[in-house]
Each structure stands twice: as C-alpha cells, then as structure tokens.
Simulated assay, not measured.
Amino acid sequence: MESITLRRFTDGDSVEELTRLLHRAYADHAAAGLVFFASYQTPEDTRRRLRKGECWIALEQGTIVGSVTVTGTYDTPPGYPAPTAAGSFWQLAVDPSRRGTGLGSRLLTLAEARIADLGSSRVVIDTSSQAADLLAWYGRHGYASIGTWKWDVTNYDSVVLAKSLLP
C-alpha cells in the first residue's frame, strides 16, 4: 500500500482512464445483472459527476487504481430519505487487482474526513439492495440503513445508508 498515493483528480488526469477504472471496478456487479451506473457510464457522464464534488484518486506507478468523489452537502431528489446538510460520496471504486489490500477502506476514510472537513456531520450514500457484499462492507464501517430509493439509471432498488461523523 505504500506505493499507492492518494490525491485530488486534476485537469491533467484522464477522464477516460477513470471511466475505465469504474467499469472494471463494477464489472462483477454488472456480470451478476446489477446495472450500477458506474458500470456503463460514458466519459462525459464521468465529467458531469466530477463537477458535483471533489474527486480523489489512488495512483500506483501513475495508473489510477482507485477513486472516490465527495461533497459536503448535496441536493437530493424530492423524497430521497437523507437528512438535510448530509454529505455524500459516490464512485468509490477499487481496481479488482487491488481488492483485499485495504485500499477501499483507505478511500472510505478519506471520503469521510473530507465530508467532515467540508462541514457535514453525517454522510449518506446508497447501493443496491442486492449487493450483499457491499451492504456488509458498509455495515462493518458503521453505516446503517435509513430507507430505500429507486434511481432511473439502475435496475434495482437501493438501500440508503447513513453514518454519523461525530466522534
């Protein structure tokens, strides 16, 4: 893990490379029939999502092997079960070759720290109700279900998860 550095995504970084990482990271879920948006988004979709927050990338020898995009507060659709002024993150992705190394936990810790630094005391995310591995992983990191949601870009119901960032 020492050879992996975390830093903000910059204009000089490749949106196409980041998009390919997202496709690889979500490929197992796509193969299982779960249509996560990150599994098929275009580079333009990636650019649009990058503009909504701070994107952090994990680099190993100049190659993007992980990412997460964070925001201190964000606008949710009407009815979305999130507390006001909660922060969020999305596109948390780890290259399949780096799974089990702790990189996902490292990116999650970074995301939570940035959300707190940006002024939010709670974080809200969502993931597929059918992604038992992700639900268990987030549960081990202190996230609890607060509701459900159905996005129009996926083929599943999402579980909305929240965590307090207060000590």
Rank of each mutant, 00 (worst) to 15 (best):
V65D: 11
H141G: 08
R99D: 12
T73H: 06
R114H: 11
Y40V: 09
T69E: 08
T109H: 14
S121G: 14
D117Y: 05
T42Y: 04
H141Q: 10
Q41H: 13
P96T: 07
D152T: 14
Y143R: 07
I115L: 06
P43M: 11
P77G: 01
R47K: 14
L92K: 06
A113K: 13
V124F: 00
G72W: 06
A144R: 15
D45Q: 11
A136P: 05
A131Y: 05
R98N: 07
L108C: 12
S128H: 09
P81A: 11
D152P: 08
P96A: 01
L59R: 10
D157P: 05
Y74G: 12
W151H: 15
R106P: 02
A116H: 09
G87E: 00
T101W: 09
Y143T: 07
T127K: 05
T71P: 01
D95M: 12
G104L: 01
R47T: 11
F36G: 02
T101K: 09
L118E: 04
E112T: 13
G147T: 05
R47Q: 13
P43I: 12
A136F: 10
L108D: 14
R106H: 08
K150H: 13
T101P: 05
R99A: 00
T71N: 14
T148M: 00
G53A: 09
C55I: 01
T63E: 15
D152N: 13
Y138A: 04
L59A: 12
Y40Q: 12
S105T: 13
Y156I: 00
A132M: 02
T127I: 01
L118K: 06
R48G: 12
N155M: 08
S120I: 04
G147F: 01
G72Q: 07
L110T: 03
T42C: 05
P78I: 00
E44V: 13
I146T: 12
A131T: 00
D126V: 02
T69Q: 11
G72Y: 06
Q41R: 15
L134C: 09
Y143I: 05
W56D: 00
S145A: 15
E54F: 11
A82G: 01
E112N: 05
Y40T: 15
I115W: 04
A58D: 03
A111D: 12
A113P: 00
D133M: 04
R98E: 15
S67M: 02
T63P: 00
D152S: 14
A116G: 02
I146H: 00
F37H: 15
G79A: 10
L103E: 04
T101M: 12
G100F: 06
A93Y: 10
V70M: 10
S39N: 09
G66M: 02
L92M: 14
Q130N: 13
P78L: 07
G104H: 10
T46V: 15
A136H: 13
W137P: 01
W56H: 15
G79C: 07
A86R: 03
T73S: 08
V153L: 12
P96N: 01
S39P: 11
S39D: 10
G62Y: 03
V124N: 00
E54I: 12
L110I: 11
L110G: 03
S88V: 08
T73K: 02
G66N: 02
R98F: 15
T154R: 05
S67A: 14
T127V: 03
I57N: 07
F89C: 07
R47Y: 03
A85S: 14
P78S: 08
P43T: 08
R114F: 01
S39W: 05
Y74K: 01
A131L: 03
A132D: 14
P77S: 09
R48L: 15
L107D: 07
